[in-house]
């Protein structure tokens, strides 16, 4: 059964939640500001030509800055990145196969444009995935959903996200206990047979539905009438528009001018 890796994943989710409850300056930035900046960042990074490399480098400052100022350990991010990369790697690896035209010469070394675009895909993957992970690690699910509602996301959807998140751990735990029960009773057997699997999933589903019914009763008992009221108190502070504005300015500059190449040329001029 594929649970060992999954267990690690759950621990990671719990850890993300802990990270999100720190009180660093980054964590005090409004969730709306962080969401907008993250989306902008991803959009700008993905808007580069597909074989762009050097111009992408300055963009690493965004995740690195959040990670450092928000005290998010790099190790846990890298572990997640390793899990997230395979599909992009698999599809991207075909680029060098299908596109062998030489594109870049470094002295005697010729690099094909396929390899350039493959490397570029990997860079983007690193940038966008880390930005998304950092968004949660710096806001947390509750503040993020609050921010989403205030950005215009339907309340029903935000509530759905919160409920899903609330019962994730509980159901994962139930699933883990049930799979462990099966494993203990079938020593030496690798994996679950279809029939056992269906009954396992079926019972898990019935239990989930029974739980949903009990939750509904508990909600009704406290006056639930179909509409969840959420209270938003955090006001925007001056730092929030500054955060969005500052990064937007940087993204714009780094998008229009290739800062890394300019730096390189400057250095080489200095050396030569």
């Amino acid at each position: 059964m594929a649970f060992p890796m999954a267990v690690e994943r759950w621990l990671d989710v719990a850890r993300m939640d802990e990270l999100a409850r720190q009180g660093t300056p980054v964590h005090r930035i409004d969730a709306r500001a962080q969401t907008v900046t993250t989306l902008l960042f991803i959009g700008v990074v993905m808007s580069f030509a597909r074989d762009e490399l050097s111009a992408l480098m300055p963009f690493f400052i965004y995740p690195v800055a959040l990670m450092s100022a928000g005290r998010i350990p790099a190790a846990s991010l890298l572990r997640k990145l390793a899990v997230a990369m395979p599909f992009a790697v698999a599809v991207g690896l075909l680029n060098p196969v299908f596109d062998t035209r030489p594109a870049l010469a470094l002295g005697p070394l010729h690099v094909s444009s396929g390899w350039l675009s493959f490397l570029s895909i990997m860079l983007r993957c690193l940038l966008t995935v880390s930005a998304a992970l950092l968004l949660v690690a710096c806001t947390g699910m509750q503040r993020l959903c609050e921010g989403l509602v205030r950005l215009g996301v339907p309340r029903v959807f935000a509530v759905q996200l919160l409920f899903l998140y609330r019962y994730l751990f509980l159901l994962a735990d139930e699933g883990r206990r049930m799979t462990r029960g099966i494993e203990l009773r079938s020593p030496g057997v690798r994996g679950v047979r279809f029939r056992v699997y269906v009954s396992l999933i079926g019972h898990l589903l019935l239990r989930a539905m029974a739980r949903a019914e009990r939750i509904y009763h508990a909600m009704q008992a406290r006056g639930f009438d179909g509409r969840i009221r959420l209270q938003f108190t955090s006001p925007l502070r001056l730092a929030d528009p500054l955060f969005v504005g500052g990064w937007t300015l940087f993204f714009a500059v780094a998008r229009v001018w290739n800062l890394a190449e300019a730096l390189g040329a400057l250095l080489m001029k200095g050396v030569g």
Binding site: F3, F163, G191, F194, I201, E213, Y216, F224
Partner: peptide
């Protein structure tokens, strides 16, 4: 549709799908 009970049911079933996707069975 005004089906109030959908609110917790959808949330819990979302968590269920998450959990179920982590459990595999072997294809003979």
């Amino acid at each position: 549709s005004a089906k109030d009970h959908l609110v917790p049911l959808m949330g819990v079933l979302g968590a269920f799908v998450f959990t179920a996707q982590m459990i595999n069975f072997t294809i003979p």
